[in-house]
Amino acid sequence: MTAAERHPKLLYWAGVALGPLAWGINLQGIYALAHFSCETTKLTGAIMSAVLAVVALAGTAISARAVRRGAGAEWTDAQGGGPRTFMAWLGVGSGVLFALVIANQLAASLMISPCLR
């Protein structure tokens, strides 16, 4: 196996991992920073969400790249038999989905003041 082949194999599942990770950090982060952002700028949460949505989408991009390179194997839908490309496709979907969840949380932090109880 050459290095070029190994590289996409290593990261084909990046989207599956990065999306949920970014979302988890966003959830805990805004929560933990609510007190702080109430006293200073009200935009802390929104900025963090924007950054983390990009992180989730980066997962999608890496997985999409792995799909394009074939991720080491062919994948035909009905038969199966290309697990890496398959996982890479899941990564593409997962990154987008979690970016959307983060975007919805961004909307929440724009609309609701961190001071409101």
């Binding site: 959830l27 929560y31 609510a34 969840v101 949380q105 929440a108 961190p114 409101l116 109880r117």
Partner: peptide, 14 residues
């Protein structure tokens, strides 16, 4: 805090 609750609305809806 209401913002905290709103974040969970976001995930629950999605």
């Amino acid at each position: 805090p209401q913002l905290g609750a709103g974040l969970f609305t976001a995930s629950s809806m999605l």
